[in-house]
Design a protein around this nucleic acid. Structure first.
Lengths: 341, 341
DNA sequence: CTGTTAGCGCATTCAT
DNA sequence: ATGAATGCGCTAACAG
């Protein structure tokens, strides 16, 4: 599976060409083109003009070889086809772009092998840093061993202390639950696909906190564990609604499970926003288009991506503080799927 | 906006280190690690083992400098936050990944300057090829001048002949219109944001062909031009439905306009799938979740991306045929939003 | 089959 | 302020 490497295509001008055309030496060209080092204003202008005239563009590979680093940032994303992650990636890209860097994007399908390959590739390219959404402690270690800056986005990688940007999952879980409580709901179920990470665990914790604060006793049987796909979620939610007919509100922990929750409600002939309130995390497009519109916590993935990139850029600028954890406040978007009991 | 370049991080082993450790010369290491050139099986194994042992990973920048090309492929995408394009990008990434290449992704927001910068960057990195979705003839020319292979996806770039992968827009337009005709609709409106490109123009042509084939006279006043955003589309569709109360079916030419069309129908109190049939292009997630579900043409953007990558890889392998245009057949997905008159 | 030599294009010493 | 020389790490000629 190694790529064939076809030789050159078009020969591009080098510093030497610019030097000749401007009547100076290559090193002067190099200095003039950067802000670093000395060069008389006159020469600087001359060189710049000449470079532009003959269409000189510095060869990134030569420069990177010399500098032992590159302007590229490696980005490993959990699932580009999930709009939540696509937005996150867009946020990263947006911020990198405006600081003259660029993103090498690897989609983490295809199992753990792909992640390992990505790490090797990032290292081989000497990217200046890496942003990670899938949780993988080994990967972080490997990257660190290469001396690369690592920023995690969306979820924490095990117990490792890395720069980290996440939604404020606990607060979000609490706020969403409180919203339902304020509508008079007392039997609120939570549909969950994992509780090991902050995305699952944090939201669960927030949910429980809110329930307790309302003077209720959390009922573990209302917390339904399911798998990560919509089909499984639909089945689990259906079982839950059957086993606990007194449940008046259902929270799905992300956009995929929300899909399942909506399907289950329909299947159970519970009218959303009337017989059953449904709320979810991840404010993706369809949630405002279904009728009734879904009440959600918008976690602002674009912003999470942006902040992750900013944290990384900050490290690259030499920031030397201990690992930071930035919490992006989620935003409650109330629509018609949640209604008074 | 130029990136700071912080010096090295961790010193990594080089060919020389492997050579010393294995007791051979650097060039032997190089040969042994590749399939190219001669190396005795014994030495080959020894070198491979040694390299693995000391954790050698070839420096991509050095290799690229030498080879005057890289394993990177530049990808310029119109809008990563649109699920259609996110899927397309995922398709590209998937295919590149399995052939040992990787993707440098630039999102084409931020105006034309960003595109220009991307071209310069791709060229500077000596990417082995570029895949483009936004339409920009200048960009293609610039890239070509650098000797880079260019593949366009989704839309054709002006009149330039490049490798190209698109949905079969005309057929798709025809099939979707025929579906409505077969349900007895005679006054079918089309909501369109542009007609210069194959995405708009092709679908329009297919629509007109179908109408004519049914023995009807195309009525230009049923083709409503609008802007690219959902709000504008909603307004245009509302006007259309008001001006032409006899319209019984409405086609939106992409997922964004579909959003507007649905809003307009609701606003006009026309019950979708009952008083008004609505159909759209781009089968994105929400279309199967709204009720009634939207009848759509799924253009299979992931597949379009995949095929675009394959075409490019083929060029990189030396394929020398003239420019090819590959049409990905769209798939009609019938749901409840379209019903007999 | 293997080692020696050289150069890809750049940015940085060190002289001047 | 500028030029000459050097080496980043790799691979491909060219000997042997």
């Amino acid at each position: 599976m190694t790529a064939a490497r076809t030789p050159p295509a078009g020969s591009r001008p080098t510093v030497l060409d610019v030097a000749r055309a401007a009547g100076v030496s290559p090193s002067t060209v190099s200095r003039a083109l950067h802000d670093r080092g000395y060069a008389s204003p006159r020469v600087r202008d001359l060189v710049a003009a000449t470079a532009r005239r003959i269409g000189y563009v510095a060869d990134a590979n030569a420069r990177n070889l010399r500098a032992r680093t590159s302007d590229a940032v490696g980005v490993l994303i959990s699932d580009l086809r999930n709009p939540y992650y696509a937005d996150l990636a867009a946020g990263i890209e947006h911020e990198l772009g405006s600081s003259g860097r660029h993103m090498v994007l690897v989609n983490d399908d295809g199992g753990p092998a792909k992640g390992q390959a990505a790490v090797a590739m990032f290292s081989s390219m000497r990217v200046s840093g890496v942003i990670l959404t899938p949780v993988n402690e080994l990967m972080v270690r490997a990257l660190r061993k290469q001396g690369l800056h690592v920023v995690c986005a969306d979820r924490r990688a095990g117990r490792l202390r890395t720069d980290l940007v996440t939604a404020d999952d606990e607060a979000a879980g609490r706020v969403l639950t409180e919203h339902l409580l304020s509508l008079g709901h007392r039997r609120i179920a939570l549909l969950l696909d994992e509780r090991r990470w902050s995305t699952g665990g944090g939201r669960l914790a927030g949910y429980q906190t809110a329930v307790r604060s309302a003077g209720l006793e959390p009922d573990d049987s209302l917390v339904a564990m399911t798998s990560w796909d919509a089909g499984a979620a639909a089945r689990t939610a259906t079982e839950l609604l059957t086993a606990h007919p007194d449940v008046s509100a259902l929270i799905a922990v992300n956009n995929v499970l929300a899909h399942g929750a909506v399907a289950a409600a329909r299947h159970a002939r519970r009218r959303i926003g009337v017989d059953l309130s449904v709320a979810a995390f991840d404010d993706v497009a369809w949630m405002s288009l279904v009728q009734p519109g879904l009440t959600t916590m918008d976690q602002r993935p674009f912003e999470i991506g942006r902040r992750a990139a900013i944290l990384l850029l900050d490290r690259l600028d030499g920031a030397d503080e201990p690992a930071r954890h930035e919490l992006i406040p989620a935003r409650l978007v109330v629509r018609e799927s949640t209604a008074p009991v």
